[in-house]
Amino acid sequence: MTQHQFPRQLMTLAYMASVVLMISYAVWLYAMGEYRDLVVPSFMVLLLLAAFLLHLGQDIRAHLPRLVLLACTYASVIAALYYQPNTPLIWFGLPMTAAFLLLPLAGAVVLHMTLLPLWWFMPALSQASPTLMMGYVALGLLLALPRWEHARRRALLRATDPNDSECDAYHIDTLKERLHSEYQRADMLNQRLAVLVIHLPQRDMAEEQFGPRAAEALLSALCTEVYSCCRDHDLLGRADSATFWLVLPDTSESGALLVRDRLQRALSRRVLVETGQVEVRIAACLPCPKEDFEHYLQRLEGRGSALAKR
């Protein structure tokens, strides 16, 4: 599930606050003698505690506890509106706000539009005026607008920024453009060109077990060692999540193999706290005489896939 990322500490506070609020709500219902309405909040407390524990787990995807939190928000508001028709309708917008905060924009809009006709089966909303429906739609638009503008700005930044968003390397589109330029220059000037395909097998494991910061530290360590071992005009770009291409202009196959050995020795001495010694798989890939550039790109991608399967 693709979604915007909140800091882990902020989400921890959100889960803790939701548990405290639900417990307070259940205690208030108990003090008021509303024992019939106490069942749903009590069950929601258990679910929220489970979501909090899932959030603390290192090997659990972030979207699972968020879905539990969102479901608890909807269930609590629906139960309050069903059993207590006099509940202020201001709580009507709480689950919608939570959906736009916890779900991707498209998923929140679809959920918002799907539940629009279903809300009016609630006793508290059966006699609601048409202005309430207009307010519901307006609130949805107001909540969607900042997310849409943020996505638009990110797309604009991605289109204009040549660097990858997670490490100090070229983005795949910029990498292919620069590689194409070096390919044409080598062909016109009858010079040599080599590309090292570098795969990080620990990258996906680091993110799953230790979170995105460990994965970014691994990527940063790779980029730092590459730049320390290579020339200023060599190009490093990220081909996919765990694969990089190091473009070596005016480099023969033997020179590329020397660079590969130097990189492997340097990276083997790099030790990180979470993942230990950095492991890499590196292969050299040189263009064949009179080879089409698109075919060369396919060979590079195939070499990266082969390294990932080793």
Score class of each variant (00 low, 15 high):
V273T: 11
R178E: 11
L141M: 12
Q264A: 05
K290L: 09
L246M: 05
L236T: 05
A17D: 10
D173R: 15
S252C: 03
C167M: 06
Y227A: 10
S268Q: 15
L142G: 08
L200K: 00
L69G: 02
I90A: 12
V195E: 11
Q127V: 07
S24I: 07
C288F: 01
V195N: 06
W148G: 11
M16L: 13
S76V: 06
Q191A: 13
L38H: 07
P289Q: 08
P123R: 04
L105R: 14
L272G: 03
V197G: 04
V40I: 15
T97I: 01
L175N: 04
D168V: 02
P123Y: 04
D161E: 13
M205E: 13
T73P: 03
F121P: 00
F6W: 15
R262V: 07
A128C: 00
Y170M: 09
T251L: 01
V19Y: 00
R265L: 09
L116W: 03
L143A: 11
L56M: 12
R265A: 06
F52Y: 09
V226F: 05
L300Q: 03
P212K: 13
P65V: 08
L246W: 07
M1P: 04
L267E: 00
M134D: 06
M11H: 02
L307D: 02
T131M: 12
M205R: 12
D232C: 13
R310S: 14
L139C: 14
C288H: 04
P212R: 12
L141P: 00
A214Q: 02
L118F: 14
E301R: 12
D173W: 05
A128N: 03
G57W: 06
A283D: 09
K309W: 07
A26E: 09
S76T: 06
R238F: 04
D261Y: 04
R153E: 13
Q3K: 13
R192I: 06
D187Y: 10
L53F: 15
T251N: 03
T160D: 08
P123C: 05
V110H: 04
A108K: 08
T251A: 11
E34K: 14
E149G: 02
L46Q: 06
A108Y: 03
L236F: 00
G211F: 13
D187H: 14
F244G: 10
V259W: 01
L246N: 09
A51H: 09
M133I: 09
L179Y: 03
A138F: 08
Y25K: 02
L89G: 04
Y25T: 04
A50P: 00
G237S: 02
P85I: 01
H63M: 04
V109W: 04
L49D: 05
F293Y: 14
D261G: 07
Q5Y: 08
D168W: 00
G237I: 03
V39Y: 14
